[in-house]
Design a protein around this nucleic acid. Structure first.
Length: 302
DNA sequence: ATCAATGGGAGCTGATTTAT
DNA sequence: ATAAATCAGCTCCCATTGAT
């Protein structure tokens, strides 16, 4: 009963997962590691994370990630789906499972109902037209985690607030895809930090509509007294060039980058950012602070 | 001593591309 | 048209490591 791997002999696993009884939920509490709990939390907060993304954030190797995620799946802590792909295969996409929701609620000291978890609404993302967008946003932060892990110098994703949390706080004015805080060590000893709002662009909105969001960000900056730069993470060089033509005047600091593997091989932490009004060279994420002068450094959001 | 996590090998599935 | 090669990703298995 206490051997987590014993049940793995039972195949096919999909049909052998236990029903959700109080016993299952209680058993989960004994078998989940602290990292497992973080995974459940992340999958709930960010709706859906792929095997690669969870590996980047939590695991030392893809091999171990698959191993543990499968175990969590069989415990009903996680659910998963695999989007159809025109060519080749896609990784598993992981979402919170019913037993995982119970555990997460207990961990937070609330009831499952208060968590507002519904299995069908959680899995709705699988068929949602926003799946690619959500996965893209999460990929941005997964790549930051990869950079931090690879450097092992103290660089870190200090904050990663999902769209839902941002909307709760500021939704009447602006609805960023995420709020983030990235830190890197500096020679002074005091770490460098940059706060940002992410606008992950998949090219489906008109540029006029994208641009119109900046009014909301300006209003938000005025309301809170904190100016937080907006980063546009774009799918193609053409899209970026067209947007930059329109970004010439703005009350909010902005920067753009193109997120193809060729243009951003090192992810968003690398020298890919071009501040609005600048002609180059492209700067690393951390260097954007200097690009706009000192905008209330180290200020707390909210 | 025990048990979970890790690292890596081997083999499987499902899909496409290339060769016969 | 059929078979073989190829590819990404997942699972099974075993030896080792690490924490308690």
């Amino acid at each position: 009963m206490t051997r987590p791997n014993a049940h793995r002999r039972l195949l096919p696993s999909r049909h052998q997962r236990p029903r959700l009884t109080p016993n299952v939920v209680a058993g989960l509490a004994e078998r989940l590691t602290p990292r497992d709990a973080e995974i459940l939390d992340a999958v709930w907060e960010h709706r859906v994370l792929t095997t690669d993304q969870l590996t980047a954030i939590f695991f030392p190797s893809i091999h171990r990630a698959r191993h543990r995620l499968l175990a969590l799946h069989e415990m009903r802590a996680l659910d998963r789906f695999r989007p159809w792909a025109p060519t080749g295969s896609r990784p598993w996409h992981w979402i919170l499972g019913t037993a995982g929701a119970h555990h997460l609620a207990a961990q937070r000291g609330i009831t499952p109902a208060e968590l507002r978890y519904r299995p069908d609404s959680a899995s709705a993302i699988a068929l949602s037209s926003r799946l690619n967008h959500q996965v893209g946003v999460n990929e941005f932060f997964a790549q930051l985690h990869t950079t931090a892990r690879h450097r092992a110098d103290g660089s870190a994703v200090a904050e990663w607030w999902p769209e839902r949390r941002c909307a709760t706080l500021w939704g009447d004015l602006a609805r960023p895809d995420a709020f983030g805080r990235w830190t890197e060590p500096s020679p002074t000893g005091q770490p460098d930090t940059i706060d940002f709002f992410l606008e992950h662009d998949t090219g489906t909105e008109t540029l006029a509509r994208v641009l119109a969001k900046l009014d909301g960000y300006a209003a938000l900056a005025e309301a809170t007294g904190i100016t937080t730069p907006v980063l546009f993470w774009l799918p193609s060089a053409a899209r970026e060039a067209n947007l930059r033509k329109l970004l010439t005047s703005s009350d909010v600091p902005t920067a753009t980058a193109v997120h193809t593997p060729v243009t951003a091989p090192d992810g968003p932490a690398g020298p890919v950012w071009l501040p609005a009004g600048s002609t180059g060279p492209r700067r690393p994420l951390i260097a954007l602070r200097d690009a706009w002068g000192t905008i209330n450094p180290h200020s707390e959001p909210v």
